[in-house]
């Protein structure tokens, strides 16, 4: 297939996944910030929402005080934030429109329908800076549903060929990156200092991490015990059955890269890099991760994923 087509499909998937992650982050942060101050700890929830969305720098350069309304605006509708939810959907559609022929009717319908809906939100006062929690929650629901629609239609209707594989690659690379980011921002509350089950003020921080990656219920099914920080790390890094864990993302990345390599009868640096990261994840344990330092581990992971992204770009998507 055309390198340009593959590139657009890859980025389309990334932006849709990113929009979903941002919506969940805003939602989880809102819950956390609504708690009485002695429950929520630091009072820097909105700051860390900016950090884990990679938007902190841009916010500081263009906005003033960090508060709920301004951060929400920046992460949802701000046109000057390249990674706001609006821009993600806008970019997803632009990528989709550039390769209409590579999308199924259902996928295009999901993306274009969402874009039309988005215009409606923008046209309402809500998109123009008026802060309204009810409208916001409707908007966040809409974003989550959009990514489900897109994802589901891609999964159900695309031919299983390289177009599908590149699209899935984009999704899992973005997802791995997002999970790693939230771990990186929140690593300090995940350190196993002392175990005060149920009573820790960090409890709500932990559950908000799980919420941001829609894993709160999954946690209970997997561990069948109360929320503990090292188990959260275990779940989000090493549990293959958890669809947003780093290892699950890499299993998928390796799978789709291998499918491409088989179809093209040639394997390259991208495959080598992905296999290496997966092997490392398979070898390691939570104990080891905490021994190295969670922060150090995640930093290294983010760098490896960045490297992989560049290898894929170089090997397949250049035009």
């Amino acid at each position: 297939m055309l390198s340009r087509t593959a590139d657009h499909l890859y980025w389309l998937a990334r932006y849709m996944e990113r929009a979903d992650f941002l919506a969940r982050t805003v939602e989880a942060t809102q819950r956390l910030a609504a708690l009485p101050t002695n429950y929520s700890g630091s009072g820097t929830e909105w700051e860390s929402a900016l950090e884990s969305s990679g938007a902190a720098e841009g916010f500081r350069a263009t906005r003033g005080k960090i508060d709920e309304a301004s951060v929400v605006e920046y992460l949802t509708f701000a046109s000057d934030n390249p990674s706001s939810i609006c821009n993600c959907i806008e970019l997803a559609r632009a990528n989709g429109r550039a390769v209409r022929t590579a999308l199924t009717v259902e996928m295009w319908d999901a993306i274009n329908g969402a874009w039309i809906e988005l215009k409606r939100f923008e046209d309402s006062n809500f998109g123009r800076g008026r802060f309204d929690r009810e409208e916001l929650s409707r908007f966040l629901e809409f974003v989550k549903k959009t990514s489900l629609d897109y994802d589901g239609s891609a999964h159900r209707t695309m031919l299983r060929n390289d177009a599908y594989w590149f699209s899935r690659l984009g999704l899992y690379i973005e997802r791995a990156d997002n999970t790693a980011r939230i771990l990186d921002v929140k690593y300090h509350v995940l350190l196993p200092v002392d175990e005060t089950v149920g009573g820790s003020i960090d409890y709500f921080q932990w559950t908000s991490i799980l919420r941001a990656v829609s894993a709160l219920n999954a946690y209970h099914w997997v561990y069948r015990e109360s929320v503990k920080p090292w188990l959260i790390a275990d779940l989000l890094i090493l549990k293959a059955e958890m669809p947003r864990s780093l290892i699950a993302c890499y299993e998928n990345i390796v799978h789709y890269l291998d499918s491409i390599a088989v179809a093209y009868s040639v394997s390259g640096p991208a495959q080598a890099q992905a296999h290496e990261v997966l092997a490392r994840l398979e070898r390691t344990t939570t104990q080891e991760i905490f021994k190295i330092g969670l922060h150090e581990f995640i930093t290294e992971f983010v760098e490896s994923t960045d490297l992989l992204g560049r290898a894929i770009q170089e090997q397949y998507l250049k035009y």
Binding site: L2, S3, R100, I260, Y264, Y319
Partner: peptide
């Protein structure tokens, strides 16, 4: 895009094509 889809042919832009030895090629993932 509609026609390319119905025809089952690649929809290319100028930057997707190149000419070498007086032959036309498209840049693909392969």
């Amino acid at each position: 895009s509609f026609l390319a889809d119905k025809l089952g042919v690649e929809l290319v832009e100028g930057r997707d094509l190149l000419v070498e030895d007086d032959r036309v090629y498209m840049r693909t993932t392969e």
